[in-house]
């Protein structure tokens, strides 16, 4: 269908965008790539009165490695994330996710900021940023503030972003030596949302034991989940054999697992365990090579 009518304003800068948001308040929605919002509007499931197009704020499209961190501007497309050399070395799991997210056309338009702000529980980046750690920076009328990634998602389609704020940047700690990350997505069909997505970031000591482990999953519940019990199972152990099995076994401990006719909860739980074990092995291999 044709989307419902709306007023369209374009922001050339973050300040302009903030001014529009201040002016229109709850009536306004930000439009970046539009690949989450426009389909909802075409199905008439969303009807914002004003669209504030921030897609041309070029200052928000960047990937930079600086001071042991990887900084990605909110309007960086998935394709740019997938292609960026800095992402491949500093946060490989992000490139993994960017390469399996949607399809080539979607990756050309969709942005990391849009994906993080939309906070779809099935979105691939949701798990990746939780596993990588780091922060999200937002701007509002009162200035800028930074939110720890663990505090970012507050519920299904809900984030720490306040009304009137714009997401500016995601910043991840860059991979150090003997550190590796991976994102594995299991979908029924190419381009689909996953049935399970698992992101793992591992650091290994010289003895091959885990010095750090962060594990997170998307598509398994009503929001991305961090698997702290699984992380604990790996702590100080070599990521192989029983350690991996034990970590995988508790990966969804305490999680209310999504259940639908095409992916029942028991299967999803099992799949998360299988994929977690595989992701740990891949992350470990990458860490050893790093």
């Amino acid at each position: 269908m044709i989307p419902p009518a709306f007023e369209y304003v374009r922001a050339a800068s973050v300040d302009e965008a903030l001014a529009h948001l201040a002016k229109y308040g709850d009536d306004a929605r930000l439009l970046a790539g539009g690949h989450s919002l426009l389909p909802l509007m075409r199905l008439r499931l969303a009807a914002p009165r004003v669209l504030v197009d921030i897609g041309r704020i070029r200052e928000l499209a960047y990937v930079r490695a600086e001071g042991g961190e990887l900084a990605i501007g909110a309007l960086t497309t998935h394709h740019a994330v997938e292609q960026a050399a800095a992402v491949a070395t500093a946060a490989r799991a992000l490139a993994d996710a960017a390469s399996v997210l949607g399809d080539p056309q979607v990756r050309n338009r969709g942005t990391i900021g849009g994906e993080l702000a939309h906070a779809d529980p099935a979105a691939d980046y949701g798990a990746v940023v939780l596993a990588l750690g780091g922060t999200v920076t937002a701007a509002g009328r009162g200035g800028r503030r930074t939110v720890a990634i663990d505090d970012w998602v507050r519920g299904p389609f809900t984030t720490a972003l306040q009304p009137g704020e714009i997401l500016l940047e995601y910043r991840a700690p860059a991979a150090a030596a003997r550190e590796g990350s991976v994102y594995r997505k299991f979908a029924r069909r190419a381009s689909d949302y996953g049935m399970v997505g698992v992101a793992v970031r591992l650091g290994l000591g010289a003895d091959g034991r885990c010095t750090s482990a962060r594990i997170a999953l998307s598509c398994v519940s009503d929001q991305p989940v961090r698997a702290q019990a699984a992380e604990a199972a790996l702590a100080g152990r070599a990521p192989e054999g029983d350690a991996v099995r034990e970590a995988a076994a508790v990966v969804l401990q305490g999680v209310r697992v999504a259940d639908d006719p095409f992916c029942p909860a028991d299967y999803r739980t099992h799949l998360a365990q299988v994929e977690t074990a595989r992701a740990i092995a891949e992350a470990a291999a990458r860490a050893r090579a790093a």
């Binding site: 399809d103 069909r189 190419a190 381009s191 689909d192 949302y193 095409f262």
Partner: peptide
């Protein structure tokens, strides 16, 4: 078409 799985070239 988001849920009804008409196969893509990858499938």
């Amino acid at each position: 078409l988001m849920e009804y799985a008409v196969p893509t070239s990858m499938d």
